[in-house]
Amino acid sequence: MDIRVVHHRSRAAGSVATVIDVTSRGPHPWVRCSPFYPHGGIPVPLSPGAVGTSVEAIWQALKVFDTAGVDRDLLTATRMTGLKRTVRRFGPVRGHRAGLDGTDLLDYETARRRIYLPAYRFVLDRHLGAELTQLRALATAGPVALLDYTTNGDVSDLTKPLSHAALIRLHVLNEWPPG
């Protein structure tokens, strides 16, 4: 299977047989692959019994800043916009809380591994079965380009945001978990 992760503005995607926009602005059903999509019922990692509506809501809710801690209200947000909590508003990021009631702060890479990856994996396994089946069929028939705003599939590369399209690719190719 030939599945490529391509920046959403790249012209290179045009040379591929099938182009799929998996961003929050993609068409239905592919928009459901976005970490911003409010599937609901996603377990909050390191927080037994707690759930969030989207992967991004969970990620942002557990982010801790100099002037703001965990934001539990984000866990119920059903919108796909306005979820990001920024340095401009709250000051420097100190880390991600190890669970809603945790006391430890996780560094960025550890947070990716212990919060983001498990939450997104849950979505892949429990909410995106039809989309992943369709993607496998398309990739078996010919090359596929997954469009995302970033193309970084290396969890350890902290210089760039992690690409959920790259995570989809790894999952479909049975190469999960990522490095």
Results as ranks from 00 to 15, higher is better:
residue 52 G to D: 09
residue 55 V to P: 06
residue 58 I to C: 08
residue 59 W to T: 06
residue 62 L to S: 04
residue 63 K to E: 03
residue 71 D to K: 02
residue 73 D to R: 12
residue 74 L to M: 03
residue 74 L to R: 02
residue 76 T to Y: 03
residue 77 A to T: 14
residue 77 A to C: 14
residue 78 T to H: 01
residue 78 T to C: 04
residue 78 T to E: 10
residue 78 T to S: 04
residue 80 M to L: 09
residue 81 T to Q: 13
residue 89 R to M: 11
residue 90 F to W: 15
residue 90 F to Q: 06
residue 90 F to N: 15
residue 91 G to F: 10
residue 91 G to W: 04
residue 91 G to A: 09
residue 95 G to K: 09
residue 96 H to Y: 07
residue 96 H to T: 05
residue 99 G to M: 05
residue 102 G to D: 01
residue 102 G to V: 10
residue 103 T to H: 08
residue 109 E to Q: 13
residue 109 E to A: 08
residue 110 T to E: 14
residue 110 T to D: 10
residue 111 A to S: 13
residue 112 R to A: 08
residue 113 R to D: 07
residue 117 L to A: 04
residue 118 P to I: 11
residue 118 P to A: 09
residue 119 A to E: 07
residue 120 Y to I: 08
residue 121 R to Y: 09
residue 125 D to E: 15
residue 125 D to A: 15
residue 126 R to H: 15
residue 127 H to M: 03
residue 131 E to D: 02
residue 133 T to R: 13
residue 136 R to P: 02
residue 140 T to I: 05
residue 141 A to N: 04
residue 141 A to T: 09
residue 143 P to A: 15
residue 144 V to C: 01
residue 144 V to S: 01
residue 145 A to Q: 04
residue 148 D to K: 03
residue 148 D to W: 07
residue 149 Y to I: 01
residue 150 T to H: 13
residue 151 T to A: 09
residue 151 T to Q: 03
residue 152 N to F: 06
residue 155 V to G: 01
residue 156 S to Y: 06
residue 160 K to P: 00
residue 161 P to M: 03
residue 162 L to M: 06
